[in-house]
Amino acid sequence: MTPSARLQAAIELLDDIIVAARDNGASADNIAKKFFKVRRYAGSKDRRAVREHVYAAIRRFGERPENGRAAMVGLAKELPELRDSFDGSTYGPAKLEDNEQFAGGEAIAGWLLNEFAQPVDGNEKAALFDRAPLDIRLNPKKADASVIATAWPEVETLPLSHAYRLPTGTSVENSEAYNMGQIEIQDMGSQAIIAACLVGAPKLVLDMCAGAGGKTLGLAAQLPDDVRIIAADTDRGRLSRIDPRLRRSSTRNVETMLLSPNKEIEALEPLSGQCDLVLVDAPCTGTGTWRRNPELRWRMTPKRLEQTTELQARLLDLASRMVAPGGRLVYAVCSLLDAEGGDQTEAFLKEHPGWRDIEVDLPIGRPYRKGLLLTPYQDGTDGFYFTCLEKL
């Protein structure tokens, strides 16, 4: 492919990503995979170049562009080397026109700037666009640290138990350790949330928004085998992905529970007041994962934020009903917005006088509004807010 053809391909791929962001469709990565699957003529260098164009535009513009061409024209105004590729050739984009529409603005939409937690300053916001590291979690029931050191001598030991960091780009999923269930890929921030859940000795655990089961697996790996763990979610597709992971890790004390959206209580009712630990890894805007999913910014609107926080408050209230007296509720979001973090915790405690917040002692994170805040800049993790609450 010529440079012009690569740029035109980037424009077309961006068109698909922009529509998906507007309509809450597939992720940019999945769209890109499908895009290249039907364009087998694109070689590896072509695909890499197209992706670089696409993600440069996604990271640059906080507001969702009107279309792919507007995004790339906006980028070309800042990167003069791109302008020559707007040459009107057969497979390239049309030539630039005077007064042509183009994307602009800052990397974070203006309406969002004042929504971040107070410690998230300019340096913190800039770090949200750094390249994410590759963290893994050891399963202590199947291996010890020597397995990781043997497979990857360059491994970095992280400050949490069983947490390690590998050079970005390391092939993990093809390794024996991964296929034997000895390790899982998991950001250190997610592992910190698991660590917060391990306080005490729970016998019945509910992971109420389990998704594909990353934190469920982490809990199962570090809790005794006689602990009953229930992984629940409303998304059948995501929940089904936990099954092969359970088999790979030889985990047998986890059961899954499919919930009906807005009718979760029907399935959860038998657990009411019975759980020693409930984890609510709540649906959120994902501002803390922009390093991995920068197109999430294009999905955000004030209305979607409002809808998300309403859902979080409802899930928190529902989860609290499942907790036994003396039991604990861990609420977590991969977001750095106060509306999804500290605001939710403080509102919950105000409306539920029979609860108190519990201090969590971890080697990473900083105390913030009755919880802990983790950020890429401060902690080298994805961005998280989480809190541990106890039912009196």
Rank of each mutant, 00 (worst) to 15 (best):
I11K: 07
S27R: 04
A28T: 03
I31P: 02
F35G: 09
R64M: 04
G68S: 09
R69L: 06
L75K: 15
S89H: 13
N99L: 15
A103C: 11
A109G: 05
L112F: 10
G122P: 06
K125W: 02
L128G: 01
A145L: 10
P153F: 05
P167S: 11
V172E: 07
S175H: 02
Q182R: 15
Q182S: 07
A196H: 03
G200D: 15
A201T: 15
M208G: 06
A210C: 10
A212G: 15
G213I: 12
P224C: 12
V227N: 07
R228E: 15
A231D: 05
A232N: 07
L239K: 06
R241K: 14
P244W: 13
S250F: 00
T251I: 14
N253S: 11
V254T: 12
L259N: 08
A267W: 04
D276T: 14
D276L: 12
T287P: 03
T287S: 09
G288S: 01
E295M: 04
W298Q: 01
Q312R: 06
Q312L: 03
V330F: 12
Y331T: 07
A332D: 01
V333N: 03
D338Y: 05
E340T: 08
D343A: 13
A347H: 07
L349T: 08
Y368V: 00
G371N: 08
L373Q: 01
T375F: 08
T375A: 05
P376C: 03
Y385E: 03
K391Y: 12
